[in-house]
């Protein structure tokens, strides 16, 4: 058996798939949050950015689909590895400690990876329906008509609804926890360890979730409480960048 086949078949191979796909998603999330933060630059800038994405990054509309397909593959492979490893880990200890086992080093985030993962999967489905497809147009979830051109209004009105905003906040707390363990764990699995990597890994473990989940939390809270203070209320007459 070649070294590659034997790696792919091993538990470590699954972990590598988990780490690689996770880091791909993390990279994408960094860009996504950065883009989201343009909400603070105003309706014009934000919609301009949304249009830039929809037009396939200003190059070719198909590119957007290419990115989406790549992400679906990453998510699918991540789940495949997670389900396989979890089943294996369960069967590796069929009889639990009758007196309980005390955690000495791990974190709640690490223990809750599968739970947070399920929460995130449900959230992604909702989030796509909510702000990409516009499935809840003129609905309590999105009280205004979903606009194909005014992403700013969709976001501000959509997330501004208290219970929707609360959902976004909860989901991003789960995301923060998932990343808090995931970033460091993924890097460790890929062998990133040593005088350079160990301190860098510790920093990334903290700053990546803080930026991604923290950034999104700030945006959700702004849509809920900061309209007219931190950001302008959407101009209903907005058609295209002035």
């Amino acid at each position: 058996m070649s070294a590659l086949t034997s790696l792919v078949r091993s538990t470590i191979g699954k972990k590598v798939v988990m780490g690689l796909t996770g880091l791909i998603m993390v990279g994408w999330l960094v860009l996504h949050t950065t883009g989201n933060l343009l909400i603070f630059a105003g309706q014009d800038a934000f919609n301009h950015y949304a249009h830039f994405i929809q037009s396939g990054f200003g190059v070719e509309p198909q590119l957007l689909w290419l990115m989406r397909i790549a992400l679906v593959i990453a998510v699918g492979a991540h789940i495949w590895a997670a389900v396989g490893l979890t089943a294996r880990n369960r069967s590796a200890r069929p009889v639990a400690y009758a007196g309980g086992r005390k955690d000495a080093a791990t974190t709640y985030a690490a223990r809750f990876m599968m739970g947070a993962g399920v929460v995130l999967l449900l959230y992604v489905a909702f989030h796509l329906a909510h702000l990409t497809v516009g499935a809840f147009s003129d609905h309590p979830v999105m009280p205004t008509t979903f606009s194909k051109v005014d992403a700013y209004a969709n976001l501000v009105h959509g997330v501004g609804v208290p219970f929707v905003g609360a959902l976004y906040i909860l989901a991003n707390l789960a995301l923060g926890a998932h990343l808090y363990h995931g970033v460091g764990s993924g890097l460790q699995t890929l062998g990133a360890d040593g005088p350079t990597w160990t301190p860098l890994k510790a920093r990334l473990t903290l700053w990546v979730p803080l930026f991604i989940a923290g950034g999104n939390l700030v945006i959700a809270l702004t849509c809920m409480f900061g309209v007219g203070v931190l950001i302008d209320a959407p101009d209903p007459a907005w058609v295209s960048p002035h």
Binding site: S6, L7, S10, K15, R88, A92, D103, A104, A105
Partner: peptide
Amino acid sequence: EAMVQTMDGEGFGGCSNHGECEA
């Protein structure tokens, strides 16, 4: 490679980087 293959075959779980082993 050989040691990992045998480890998997023996039914041990995978590493989730909890760090409990080190502790």
